[in-house]
Amino acid sequence: MKIRYLLLHAYGMGGTIRTVITQANAMAAAGHDVELVSVVRRREEPQFAIDPRVRLSALADQRAGVREPSLAARLARRLRGGAVPRGEFAAHYFTPAVERAVASYIARLTDGVLVTTRPALNLLSARHAGPGVVQVAQEHMNLSTHRPAVRDAVLRNYAKFDAVVVLTEGDRREYQEAIPGARVERIPNSVHSLDQPFSDQTGKIVLAAGRLYPQKGFDLLLPAWAEVVRDHPDWQLRIFGTGPRKDRLRGQIEQLRLYNHAFLMGRSEHFHDELTKASVFVLSSRFEGLPMVMIEAMSHALPIVSFDCPTGPADVITHGREGLLVPPKDVPGLAAALKTVIGDRELRERMGARAAKTVAAYAPASVMPRWEALFSELSAARSGS
């Protein structure tokens, strides 16, 4: 079976990138003809390991820098519109030249399965894919988190796909109800591996990770941590990730006098080692799809403290079993939950052991056959066999 994955930036970091590469690697290992197509390329090498059987290519090589479109080009695009709504979180990547390159690539395809992995790419596929191509749209976000222009475009176009695949059962119901006639399937993302060392619960470290964007809520986590260290001054908060909010978060750390208690760690080449050193993982997101970094933390037998944000955490953990769920944006509640698990090592060990068992449902061996079965069914239906 010929399978093509279209990613915005296969050379970058991020949960979606990692899970799509994991899926591509698994399909190649199963004997399929797999291609990973990156819309842009801004680094020399991918950040995640790609199976040598997976062909990797890029549509727009931007390693020498990104040339901004002229004012006239920007105005013309605004007047005529495009397949990518301006409210899409990655819309700034889709200059007229980039959008043309993606549209041209999709239009040239005549067979196989095309898997698109974010709204911008899904909408371009809906507009340009030919009748011989099996179209599968991946959605990594809850419908309600999309901005209005994106949501409207999704509702108009997603019924054109052979299948729309979402991460949680709540998402499946919401998309199915909103898009009558669409085939909506739930297949969760898979962790890279379950063969990870467990935390021994000796490190006085709470770990958080994600892009330094408003979505991840680190600006809510820091005041909660300021409450925690009043009772537990010997514990550290380590936040891994990069992004445009770094300076603002650093200023917040200074303002809250957390310079000896909270640290922005940047990117780590040995993130799984860092998870093993920690004793708690905290998720402070305002919204999520299916938070893979949380699931990876669970594979290290870490208990979870998380906001019960729209979709994601509650689909994986049960309050009081694998961790503690706190009402969204409830900073005092987050602080109290962290104090509870920090102050009780037996509770952490018990929750961590349950987390490690729960995460088995997200192992590649559990998830990948579902993708393979879906692709086979859709391909057979398209060919009429």
Score class of each variant (00 low, 15 high):
41 R>W: 11
43 R>L: 13
43 R>H: 15
45 E>H: 08
46 P>I: 12
49 A>V: 13
52 P>D: 10
53 R>M: 09
53 R>Q: 11
53 R>A: 15
53 R>W: 07
54 V>H: 10
56 L>C: 04
57 S>Q: 10
57 S>P: 06
58 A>S: 15
58 A>D: 15
58 A>T: 15
58 A>F: 11
59 L>G: 06
59 L>C: 13
60 A>C: 15
60 A>I: 08
60 A>W: 11
61 D>T: 04
63 R>A: 11
64 A>H: 07
66 V>T: 14
66 V>E: 10
70 S>L: 06
70 S>K: 09
72 A>E: 15
73 A>E: 14
73 A>F: 04
74 R>L: 14
75 L>K: 05
75 L>W: 04
75 L>E: 06
76 A>W: 00
76 A>M: 03
77 R>L: 14
77 R>E: 15
79 L>Q: 15
82 G>N: 00
82 G>V: 06
83 A>K: 01
83 A>R: 07
83 A>Y: 02
84 V>Q: 00
85 P>C: 11
86 R>Y: 06
86 R>C: 07
86 R>A: 12
87 G>M: 09
92 H>R: 13
93 Y>S: 02
94 F>H: 01
94 F>A: 03
95 T>I: 05
95 T>Y: 00
97 A>W: 00
98 V>H: 00
98 V>M: 04
99 E>G: 08
100 R>K: 15
101 A>N: 14
101 A>S: 13
103 A>H: 00
103 A>F: 00
103 A>N: 04
105 Y>P: 03
107 A>I: 01
108 R>W: 02
112 G>E: 00
113 V>E: 01
115 V>S: 03
116 T>W: 02
117 T>V: 10
117 T>W: 01
117 T>D: 07
118 R>I: 08
119 P>E: 02
120 A>W: 00
122 N>R: 03
122 N>M: 12
122 N>Y: 10
122 N>L: 03
122 N>T: 02
123 L>D: 02
123 L>V: 03
123 L>T: 00
124 L>T: 00
127 R>K: 14
128 H>E: 10
129 A>N: 07
131 P>N: 13
131 P>E: 15
132 G>A: 05
134 V>A: 11
134 V>K: 01
136 V>D: 01
137 A>S: 12
138 Q>H: 12
138 Q>M: 15
138 Q>A: 14
139 E>W: 03
141 M>R: 06
142 N>K: 06
143 L>N: 01
144 S>I: 12
144 S>Q: 09
146 H>S: 04
146 H>V: 06
147 R>Y: 08
150 V>S: 06
150 V>Y: 04
151 R>G: 10
151 R>I: 11
152 D>Y: 10
153 A>E: 08
156 R>N: 06
157 N>V: 09
158 Y>S: 05
158 Y>D: 05
160 K>V: 14
161 F>E: 01
162 D>W: 03
